[in-house]
């Protein structure tokens, strides 16, 4: 059994959902045009992941194995609905920008993956640590992607102009192909870095 610190850090480095496991690619590519959108998406997912991991871990002995997937989806959908309503009430701009990707958190494979692979086999404490690590890893990845795409695609970071007014934005990075190219280059760099560090 690994320690809690390892359980937490694996989500950020060794099993980073975006750069190592390639899970949750749909929001990763879809919403990271601006750093704030990436961050918002990451935090929403983190919240849903944390809540669903707790509930599923608590109920892990009560849910019959044969119907566990529908039960998980039901639990996850409950928290996604909460996130959807909260965002709509307090940050309508972000809610409008993320659009369909908020309801789609229900079928995000990170959340279902953690429920299936971790929460149903581990106690509540470990499940919380796992959810925090994975959620942070996802949030950091999306924010990094968003920062790169916003910096070159709009000349700013979190809406603060960085590159000055004479900068001519690189339209490619704001467009969907730019998301694939940026993600591909980051994946390559991550693999290179992990190889150098001896983590496989």
């Amino acid at each position: 059994m690994s320690t809690l610190a390892q359980e937490f850090s694996k989500g950020i480095f060794k099993e980073n959902p975006t750069f190592r496991l390639l899970l949750g690619m749909c929001p990763t590519l879809g919403v990271t045009t601006l750093a704030f959108y990436g961050f918002g998406m990451g935090v929403s997912t983190l919240f849903v992941l944390l809540c669903s991991n707790i509930v599923i871990s608590v109920l892990r002995n009560a849910i019959p194995a044969k119907v566990r997937i529908p039960a998980y989806i039901l639990i996850i959908a409950t928290f996604v609905t909460i996130v959807d309503m909260v965002l709509k009430a307090f940050v309508p701009d972000l809610h409008g920008a993320l659009g369909i990707f908020i309801p789609l958190i229900v079928v995000n494979c990170i959340i279902l993956g953690r429920a299936e692979a971790f929460a149903r086999k581990n106690n509540v404490g470990r499940s919380i640590i796992d959810a925090l690590g994975m959620g942070m890893g996802f949030t950091i990845s999306l924010t990094v992607l968003g920062i790169i795409r916003e910096l070159f695609g709009s000349g700013s970071i979190f809406g603060v102009n960085i590159l000055g007014t004479s900068f001519q934005p690189m339209g490619l990075l704001s467009s969907p192909p730019g998301a694939f190219i940026t993600l591909g280059i980051l994946l390559g760099l991550c693999n290179f870095a992990f190889k150098r560090l001896g983590i496989e």
Partner: peptide, 8 residues
């Protein structure tokens, strides 16, 4: 192609 979509 990248120039075309970026700085059309």
């Amino acid at each position: 192609a990248i120039l075309f979509v970026s700085w059309g």
